[in-house]
Design a protein around this nucleic acid. Structure first.
Lengths: 354, 354
DNA sequence: TTGTAAGCGTTATCAA
DNA sequence: TTGATAACGCTTACAA
């Protein structure tokens, strides 16, 4: 910059004003500086710039697993939206570990990101998020809300769709409906809502509402967590179908689980939807490709990312979002993986396992 | 920092040394400073730190489409590896647009990332990458190499697997084998190798080698580009199967195309593998779930990301990678989507289209 | 409209 | 082992 100023025959301050397009600069000087800059292949040091403007023009995004299609798609919405507004995105992956999240938030804050979009790993350990908010930098929660933390969240209103899906199953005659999630809980047993992740709570809540409305009991043994790998999911499916009174329908909490459950079902020789009805939350490309095409609760995932970025952008400009809870709608898409339960499916088939 | 120094009763320089763990500081002073820092909830300004160390401890990653599972998985490998070494990742998505890429590289460089991992959108327009390299900051190419640019690349050695896949098809009796890619080329017609993206070139080269070795002609009309959306892919499939001599086998260049081709095939009532054999490049979760399970050329995508990060990290530490071209191996996984061609498939079925 | 000088929060240099 | 002081490369008063 000093070189540019010298070549243009002006002071550093004037050159800075000319290149930064602020303050008052005469047209002739502006051009002279521009020419000098081009001549010298000048590139601004955004670090220095950020240091005294106090704005880094970067936002931090903290997600559980970028490898998961859900976050990939949301990420796409975030980056595109942020970029259009001149912001860059610093990505941190936590593997759904709170420790990693704590660390990521710290690092991002130290690097002076202007704001944060976070999909918090836990609703219980949130001190670091309170601290982050207390730095004054805006935070937006992605896909999950936090009861105790007063910051905007962008979510999908999934409970109604979960309820609709469950109700449809009940109306088809299902009485034993299982729910499988990757969420890790204290114990393997379901002990009640809310859970550590609101988006999972909402799914379950919708399901329980439907059950309740139909006067059906909630069987804690059909609500299973910790499906974090193909192997654990397989075990869960095994346990479920070795129950004296096995489920006739299964809800999978996301697309990764859906895949593993479907694989486990097939391994056990259980056909969908004849022996087991199947519904997956989340939107994923192959849902309509497989046989049978999957009944799913579709979510506007890309839009979730876009909206999260928009809300953050608004706050970055000093605005206050009209509401703290931004919800997008989910849709139940009925396809071929759900149908009437058949008696044959109610017989446990433990011997079929591979 | 000044406050911390004051509270600890030392100079700014000493406090900085104590907190930054460098230089010589007595144990007592170190503790005094640490206590003061804790007391004041001191957090370093990494921007200021970066400004005079010249290292931002951030790397930039520029990919075509983070939404694509391939990049999502590679990204996971990159972030995890970088994080372990203390680096953050700034992500830029280009939508495979060279202009966006040029812009992204500029911004990242201005923000002083210490290095770059790029999956270049084009092998033709690379001036910005030469410029980037000339800044002295290390660059590693991901998934694609650039003939004219002397920087390390991390790729999958996919030509042999592509050749093996094609050879297997030929040995099964196939003579008309189509290749469909999303790559956008100058014209719709295939005019020869290399193409603008080396990973696509390699796939095709493997296929052409197999054809050549079997003494088979290369039909330019079976090599199709520009399958950028479900609709264009559908059109390509239509054109292919309305040919007087339609293909009996199709190779899909990646998982997104695979999905769209499969959908288009189904729409036309073409069954796999009875009427059309199908092979997809890329690794994706649902390949073994669908019916028939897909024959694929599997790639260690996560490892590609890890290796790219490792090579960059090495260069960041001043090292020189042993080789400029890092290749990982691909495997042909034979499953159910390939088989012998049947005569019936050779009859064009133009009327089946939706 | 322009220039001077101070400041952003660190680390690097050099002397003590 | 420590401290004073000068960078780092910009922006921002304030004055001219």
């Amino acid at each position: 910059m000093a070189d540019v100023a010298r070549l243009a025959g002006v002071s550093k301050a004037t050159a800075s004003r000319a290149l930064g397009n602020y303050g008052a600069v005469s047209e002739t000087v502006r051009e002279r500086v521009a020419t000098a800059a081009r001549e010298l292949d000048y590139r601004p040091n955004e670090l220095a710039r950020s240091m005294n403007t106090g704005r880094s023009m970067s936002i931090g995004v903290v997600v559980g697993d970028i490898e998961n299609g859900y976050f990939g798609l949301a990420m796409r919405g975030i980056t595109d939206t942020a970029r259009r507004a001149g912001y860059d995105v610093v990505l941190a992956n936590t593997s759904e570990s709170v420790e990693a999240e704590i660390d990521a938030v710290k690092v991002l804050l130290d690097k002076r990101v202007d704001g944060l979009i976070i999909s918090p790993a836990s609703a219980y350990e949130t001190q670091h998020l309170h601290d982050a908010r207390d730095t004054g930098r805006p935070i937006v929660l992605l896909d999950r809300r936090l009861p105790g933390l007063d910051v905007p969240s962008v979510e999908v209103d999934i409970a109604p769709a979960a309820r609709a899906a469950t109700t449809a199953l009940i109306e088809s005659g299902h009485r034993r409906i299982a729910f499988i999630s990757a969420l890790t809980t204290d114990g393997p047993e379901f002990t009640g809502l809310p859970l550590g992740v609101s988006s999972v709570t909402d799914r379950l809540e919708g399901m329980l509402q439907a059950l309740g409305a139909a006067g059906l009991d909630v069987s804690a043994d059909l609500i299973r967590f910790g499906a974090v790998s193909r192997e654990t999911t397989r075990q869960i499916v095994r346990q479920l179908f070795e129950l004296p009174d096995p489920p006739t329908a299964v809800l999978a909490s996301d697309s990764v689980i859906a895949l593993d459950v479907l694989l486990a079902l097939r391994e056990r020789g259980l056909t969908v939807p004849d022996e087991v009805s199947f519904v997956a939350f989340d939107d994923f490309s192959w849902a309509e490709l497989i046989d049978p095409p999957l009944t799913i609760v579709s979510q506007p995932v890309h839009q979730v990312g876009v909206t999260a970025a928009e809300v953050l952008l608004l706050m970055l400009q000093g605005g206050r979002p009209a509401t703290q809870r931004h919800t997008l709608v989910a849709d139940l898409v009925n396809r071929g993986s759900t149908g009437r339960p058949r008696l044959s499916a109610r017989a446990a088939r433990p011997q079929d396992a591979g």
